[in-house]
């Protein structure tokens, strides 16, 4: 049961990253690789703030998200004001963030072993002892109370993050942002400041990525400068697998499906690891999962789309 709970916890934490990727990938139609840098930035900032003791764990999360938002603003400004290709702007900021993260932490790795994080705060709130490793039965399987609490907290945070994003995208500003990505000409003609919307959207996306990183660091007990590497693929995989499973792309379903995609993907990885897959093949397996998610729905539709595409 602990394995399952751990998988769900990571799945929920990374679903915040997936929500961020959803914004850049599905609203603005490009995969913003800044997310890899801002995930590590969120982790570094949270780790430094938590170990400094000057901020509570919740405040640390919030400030980390703001740091990520700033990184997103940078990418957005490079892209819109300096007309740098969006992918390139993302790569530039991600590269720069690596050094920034080293400076933020002052070293490449910070341990959060016995520090107060949101997870320990949540345990205290539920009067769960840190030292005693109590177990409970969930569905007849023994589970560590702490792991269960962590999974519950991750679920709460992921669903509140998702709900917040859902609410925002339904507001007047959120609708304008979606229109900016969907039909820039229309948005501009109706008075939407498209450049500002892209900057704001990327900042929200990276705030989510940073929040995800801060939570990951809190949960796993350390922040490392290399944490973000390869994370964009996880996020994209979650979004794409989610879309394949839930065939409705309206905002609410898109957000829900990204969260579910994240969970399902983590489960697949956990099963693969559990059944002794050679760890060297893990990245290959990731690519194959995503490929399957992209290709299967087309085959499932009876090849109609393939034929249609060929005629075009």
């Amino acid at each position: 049961m602990n394995l399952l709970l751990g998988t769900f916890t990571i799945g929920f934490i990374l679903s915040l990253l997936a929500a961020g990727v959803l914004i850049s990938f599905r609203i603005f139609n490009f995969a913003d690789i800044t997310a890899e840098g801002s995930l590590a930035l969120g982790a570094s900032t949270a780790a430094v703030l938590i170990t400094s003791g000057a901020f509570g764990p919740a405040a640390a999360l919030l400030i980390s998200a703001l740091a990520g938002a700033a990184a997103g603003v940078l990418t957005g400004v490079l892209h819109t004001k300096f007309k740098i290709n969006a992918l390139l702007a993302g790569i530039l900021v991600m590269t720069a963030l690596y050094s920034v993260n080293l400076h933020v932490m002052g070293k490449s790795n910070i341990a959060l072993m016995n520090e107060e994080t949101v997870f320990t705060s949540f345990n205290r709130l539920l009067s769960i002892s840190e030292s005693a490793n109590k177990t409970v039965l969930i569905l007849g399987f023994p589970a560590s109370v702490k792991e269960a609490a962590a999974a519950a907290l991750a679920f709460i945070l992921a669903s509140s993050g998702g709900a917040l994003l859902y609410w925002f995208l339904g507001t007047e500003l959120g609708a304008a942002m979606r229109a900016t990505g969907n039909c820039p000409q229309m948005a501009a003609a109706l008075g939407v400041n498209t450049e500002l919307m892209i900057i704001a959207g990327l900042s929200i996306a990276n705030a989510f990525a940073a929040l995800s990183g801060a939570l990951l660091a809190s949960y796993q007990g350390f922040a490392d400068v290399q944490m973000g590497i390869g994370m964009l693929v996880w996020g994209l995989a979650s979004v794409i697998i989610g879309e394949t499973l839930v065939r409705d792309k309206s905002v609410g379903f898109a957000i829900t499906s990204a969260i579910m995609g994240s969970i399902f993907f983590r489960l697949l990885v956990a099963i693969a690891l559990r059944f002794g897959m050679n760890p060297n093949d893990m990245k290959l397996m990731t690519a194959l999962f995503v490929l399957a998610a992209l290709v299967l729905p087309r085959i499932y539709k009876g090849g109609g789309r393939f034929a249609g595409a060929a005629v075009k």
Binding site: N182, M186, G191
Partner: peptide, 27 residues
């Protein structure tokens, strides 16, 4: 002139805010 992946209502909502300040209120 229209955003294809958004609903008719959402498109109208964006148009109805032309020249006005867009807010954090349900569209």
């Amino acid at each position: 002139g229209t955003a294809p992946d958004m609903t008719i209502a959402e498109n109208l909502a964006i148009a109805s805010m032309r020249g006005k300040k867009r807010r954090f209120l349900s569209a």
